[in-house]
Design a protein around this nucleic acid. Structure first.
Lengths: 215, 215
DNA sequence: TCGTTTTCTGACCGTATGGTCAAGTCACAG
DNA sequence: CTGTGACTTGACCATACGGTCAGAAAACGA
């Protein structure tokens, strides 16, 4: 049993690995470039350089610039939807909404590029993900509105408009990603520290939870 | 005194008029195209078509695409700063912050394109207006934080972090412009009605003012 | 080792875009 | 009416970009 042999568990494990690794490199680079330059301002050459691959290689894995962009947007949308689960298990608004704020703030912190790509896509009229807005997002929103309305009916929180509450949650949490550069500039040009992120989360939760009478 | 004479108050009033009118046409078209396609995706040809002028004429009034873009961004920044005045005259937080919310919501409604251009610019790291962030915006922010801190010290509102309160105000109000398309999609594809805008404003004010203990 | 399939890549192409220019047209002062 | 200078515009140019392709290299199964 020679130790030199590469352990190909199943057939062509190495090739699968290569493919996965390169797609990862390309998607990471693309997310960043799309975020920093927008779809129109991004160039395949720049993405290729950042990924450390020749441009032609990008077109081997992703046929067109738009296909690559689609994948980037879909990825962030899925991350975004995952955070939604926080909402579901909760019994009371303080836990459910507080947890949702924490989860979305964490996404803003961990995936600032993806967040910006999503924002830019929506701002430009969602040419690529309009169907997601009309189906998945709409269903999710309607469901969450029902949950909030339930809390209101049970007297667990003030009778606010659930839809606008949701918009406020989205706006406030995403702001820390999308306008991160502005926040950084107003923070003497330095990124928020661990402590400052905690302060931000606490502030947002404090104002909103008290604002809906669930503090 | 022949009535036919064009009343040129000062010299070459007609030419001044032509220039002003054309710059207006170009800036309006540019604001919209930059908002819908981003700086990189916008083309001078598209802006020219929308303005109803030949492309070469755009370059007569604005030497480069970037110069045109600069003007668009500066314009929205000035509108944005004007709304800030609402903050100043107020004695108590309910009036000051409530008025600021109204003013910024109104800007989101009246200038959705400009708002998006501004957002995209900041998201991309503010390559054009970085100096504004570091000077004007920073000064304004510091001043307003002092005002809010004053209210807190006087016991007129809860001791929230003034900076994060400001961020929340910006985020929430701009959301109605920047994510207007998403909001419209979730509103059965229709723009918000007069009544719905009023509801939005009222909801935002209710939650925030109660959230800071100024309701 | 050998043939097959997948991955890699430099060179190339057609097009679209920002910008230029020279020859016009028009406003207007004298 | 005429000269001057501001405005207009179709035609043009250089460049950059998305995308293609043919052939080399590497991985793989037998």
């Amino acid at each position: 049993m020679p130790a030199s042999a590469q352990i190909p568990r199943n057939k062509s494990a190495r090739r699968t690995e290569i493919r996965r690794e390169n797609e990862r490199l390309i998607l990471d680079a693309a997310e960043r470039v799309f975020a920093e330059a927008g779809f129109g301002g991004a160039t395949m050459q720049l993405i290729a350089d950042l990924a450390g691959l020749p441009k032609a290689n990008l077109h081997y894995y992703f046929p067109t610039k738009e296909a690559l962009y689609r994948r980037v947007v879909r990825n962030i949308f899925e991350i975004w939807l995952d955070a939604a689960s926080t909402f579901d298990g909760a019994e009371d608004p303080a836990t459910g909404i507080g947890g949702y704020i924490d989860a979305k703030m964490e996404i803003s912190r961990r995936h600032p590029h993806g967040s910006k790509v999503w924002a830019a896509e929506v701002m430009q009229g969602a040419p690529v993900i309009q169907d997601y807005l009309e189906t998945t997002l709409k269903d999710w929103t309607d469901g969450r509105i029902r949950v909030i309305q339930g809390w209101i009916d049970q007297g667990r929180m003030a009778p606010v408009n659930p839809r606008h509450l949701l918009y406020m949650l989205w706006a406030t949490t995403q702001h820390y990603a999308d306008f991160g550069h502005q926040i950084e500039t107003l923070n003497h040009g330095a990124p928020l520290t661990e402590r400052q992120w905690a302060e931000a989360k606490a502030s947002v939760k404090a104002i909103i939870l008290r604002g809906i009478g669930a503090a």
